[in-house]
Amino acid sequence: MPTTPDQLADLPYAHLLRPHPGPLRAEERYDTAHFDGLRFEGQASGASFLECALTGVELQGAKLRQARFNEAWVQGARWVAVELAESDWQDSAVLGSVLAGISGYGAALRRVVFRQCKLEAVNLRGALLRDVVFEDCLLRDVDLGGAKLTDVSVPGSTLEEVRLNGATLKNVDLRGAVRLGLPDGPQGLRGALIGTAQLFDLAPQFAHALGITVKDS
């Protein structure tokens, strides 16, 4: 995955960006637009964002079902109770942002980076994640039940109450996680890479799942 710029000016399309002060609209196509400090609560389902930058954007209860984000760059966002079900993300980055109460079931994320983000109460059931990185993030109460994860990594991230029940994993690298809080235990971990220390931490859950009683005396 290419290096993700930390600064707006470092985006390859930064010189093409044009300020967009207006509201978001359903089914609208936005190309090389810069949304800065936008606050939005309405309907924008099916909107398309191509080579767009969204900085300091606050969405509260907004509807972006089936929205498309292609080469989008999101920084300092606060999205609460936003509907992103069946949305499509490709070659995009979300940096220093808070996403809480998100409905993102059935979404597709390909080559997406989350860096220094907080994801809380996020529903990604049945989602597709391919080449996705969660770097230095907090994932709390994130539901990935039935999702398909391929080439996903979590360097420096903390996982709390992350559910993988029924998920399909391939080359999912959990070794860089600061903490693995998996309430479903080993269920859904087939196809994941974990470290030795993590294996010891998860040992009680593995033993319970296998019906093993561990006693030293």
Rank of each mutant, 00 (worst) to 15 (best):
M1L: 14
T4N: 03
D6G: 05
Q7W: 02
Q7V: 07
Q7A: 05
L8H: 00
A9C: 00
Y13A: 05
H15A: 15
L17H: 09
L17W: 07
R18Q: 15
P19H: 05
P21Y: 06
G22L: 04
D31L: 12
A33Y: 05
D36P: 04
D36G: 01
D36S: 07
R39T: 14
F40S: 08
E41F: 08
E41Q: 12
G42W: 06
Q43T: 10
A44C: 13
A44L: 08
S45H: 13
S48Q: 15
F49D: 07
E51S: 14
E51T: 13
E51M: 13
C52F: 09
L54M: 10
L54Y: 02
T55C: 04
L59I: 08
Q60H: 13
G61D: 01
A67H: 10
A67L: 07
R68V: 14
F69T: 08
A72H: 11
W73F: 10
W73Y: 12
Q75G: 11
R78V: 15
R78C: 11
W79H: 12
V80I: 10
L84K: 05
E86Q: 11
W89D: 01
Q90F: 05
S92T: 07
S92D: 01
A93W: 09
L99M: 06
S103C: 14
S103V: 08
G106P: 05
A107I: 02
L109S: 06
L109G: 05
V113Y: 09
V113R: 15
F114T: 06
R115A: 11
Q116K: 15
C117W: 10
E120H: 11
G126E: 06
L128V: 10
L129F: 08
R130K: 14
V132T: 13
E135V: 05
L138Q: 11
R140H: 10
R140K: 09
D141F: 01
V142H: 00
D143C: 01
L144R: 03
G146K: 12
K148M: 15
L149Y: 15
T150P: 13
T150Y: 15
D151Q: 14
D151N: 15
S153D: 04
S153L: 01
S153G: 00
E160F: 02
E160A: 07
V162F: 03
V162H: 05
N165P: 12
G166E: 11
T168R: 15
L169W: 04
K170A: 14
K170P: 04
K170G: 10
N171F: 03
D173F: 03
R175P: 00
G176R: 03
R179T: 12
L180N: 04
G181V: 03
G181Y: 02
P183E: 04
P183D: 04
P183W: 04
G185V: 10
G185Y: 04
R190I: 13
R190L: 10
A192P: 02
A192S: 11
I194P: 00
A197Y: 12
Q198C: 02
Q198M: 03
F200P: 00
D201C: 00
D201W: 01
P204E: 01
Q205G: 03
Q205R: 08
Q205K: 09
F206D: 04
A207K: 11
A209T: 11
G211H: 08
G211Q: 06
T213P: 15
T213K: 15
K215W: 11
K215S: 15
